[in-house]
């Protein structure tokens, strides 16, 4: 009977601890931010490579190890050790809009941002076919 009580107390304690951790993590995500400046890259027409000098700023609630991830190709852009804020500048090159995320050591996205690629001329493609006159 005493062992049963001990087990119940242990389960409650463990549940509370896990809930607390999740709440803490959710709080961290809620207070994290990833900002891209500027956000839009303008190319002349659809499908053209777009170039943009981008600066990324981020901050989180807790200091930790974080990495900036290009979500489109899942590649690491850069990482920081035991930091709760950071900045990084790089040349964006892309033919389509690209999502970025700030990931903690568990691989969870704590903040997200996007570089939007837009075009002036929205090309459409004619169909390739044979002669249509005859």
């Amino acid at each position: 009977m005493k062992n049963m009580k001990t087990l119940i107390v242990f389960i409650f304690a463990l549940a509370s601890l896990l809930t607390g951790i999740n709440a803490s993590a959710d709080e961290a995500i809620k207070n994290a931010a990833l900002l891209v400046t500027p956000e839009r890259c303008i190319a002349l027409h659809r499908g053209q490579m777009c170039y943009l000098d981008v600066t990324i700023n981020w901050h989180t609630y807790h200091a930790n190890d974080y990495c900036l991830i290009n979500k489109t190709d899942n590649k690491v852009v850069t990482c920081w050790k035991d930091r709760k804020q950071g900045t990084h500048s790089f040349e964006f090159q892309g033919v389509q809009s690209t999502d970025y995320s700030l990931q903690d050591p568990t691989g969870r996205d704590v903040a997200n941002a996007k570089v939007v690629v837009a075009w002036v001329y929205k090309s459409t493609k004619r169909t390739v076919s044979t002669w249509r006159l005859f």
Binding site: H45, Y121, K122, S123, T124, R126
Partner: peptide, 13 residues
Amino acid sequence: RDNSIESGFHNNY
């Protein structure tokens, strides 16, 4: 000028 050399591409604008 559009730098859009590709057979059949057409811009509606």
